[in-house]
Design a protein around this nucleic acid. Structure first.
Lengths: 163, 163
DNA sequence: AGGCGGTGGTTCACATGTCAACCAACGGCT
DNA sequence: AGCCGTTGGTTGACATGTGAACCACCGCCT
């Protein structure tokens, strides 16, 4: 592996375009949520998962799994959300170590206002611009990349075709 | 606008797939850079732009434009990079308010080691998995979305087709 | 029973990003 | 020259993310 395969024109353009879209999208969606509902994107994700769970309650480790968050991040964030009365932590009855996160009434009200606006934003920023074919491609690419990342992160370096 | 157009199955899948890919990709690339070169993704972007600029020097506001960063973020980040001897700030001769950021020798060494590895990571995580058609689609979608975001952020709410 | 590695969670110190306030210099205008 | 709105940049207070250390409890094993 002596020489570097730089990105050619096409590859550059696709990559940059994707990155810029990425930044722009998350910045836009986060700002909309924040200014219109006082929720960060992180808050939204947490509330969304909780509101879909039975009784609006989840064990932190389960929530962490859904969000793919580090446990310390989750703990910190839940602490802040608890102060703002969006969630409460209760002791877990079946496991004395753990706790259960529960969405509050206020949390539920907020997510129910935020969700339709958020979906509308996602639609108007991207989904409604896509043809069915583009949608399929995005899904396929996303899945391929995720699978590849799991492979890479599990210590498999991938096969060098020149080998 | 009384009723909400939720995302249907296809739309959900495409959207989630994109978001997950997005998170996974940036996390992966950032971690690779960090562990292998001691550079964050932000550091990398800054050094990359500087190293491509004539004499490795840029006015902060120009750099900020390229990166699409808030000026305070840039200022804070440059401060940290200066402490690590990756860049230096010099007074600007033509504008007494401003300064010029210059990449240091060490900064240049680092980016020259990091760049090939970074490109290899980008390739192996995504670019090399894509067909030419997929690449074109990604570019097209990215461009559409960016254009749309600019429209949205310039106060244009978009047209409601039911109107 | 009692030892013990693994798990669920929290906490601390620290890196990073954001917003608003601030300051000095620029440059156009009279 | 002198005023004044704008621009380039920094700063401080604060919100958020990360990694490591820590703690209590679980559950298995003998």
């Amino acid at each position: 592996m002596t020489e570097v395969r730089w990105l050619d024109e096409r590859e550059q353009r696709a990559w940059r375009s994707l990155m810029v879209m990425q930044d722009g999208l998350s910045e836009f969606l986060d700002r909309q949520l924040r200014t219109r509902c006082g929720l960060s994107d992180a808050d939204y994700q947490v509330l969304a998962h909780l509101s879909e769970a039975p009784d609006g309650r989840l064990r932190p480790f389960a929530l962490g799994g859904l969000l793919r968050w580090e446990k310390s991040r989750l703990s910190q964030h839940l602490g802040r959300m608890e102060k703002r009365d969006l969630v409460v932590r209760e002791r877990c009855l079946t496991d004395q170590r753990g706790s259960v996160v529960v969405i509050t009434g206020r949390g539920r009200e907020l997510i129910e206002v935020a969700a339709p606006q958020h979906v509308a934003d996602v639609r108007s920023a991207i989904i409604d611009l896509l043809t069915p074919a583009e949608m399929r491609t995005l899904e396929a690419v996303g899945d391929k990349v995720r699978a590849r990342l799991e492979q890479l992160e599990s210590g498999n370096p991938g096969i060098d075709p020149t080998e």
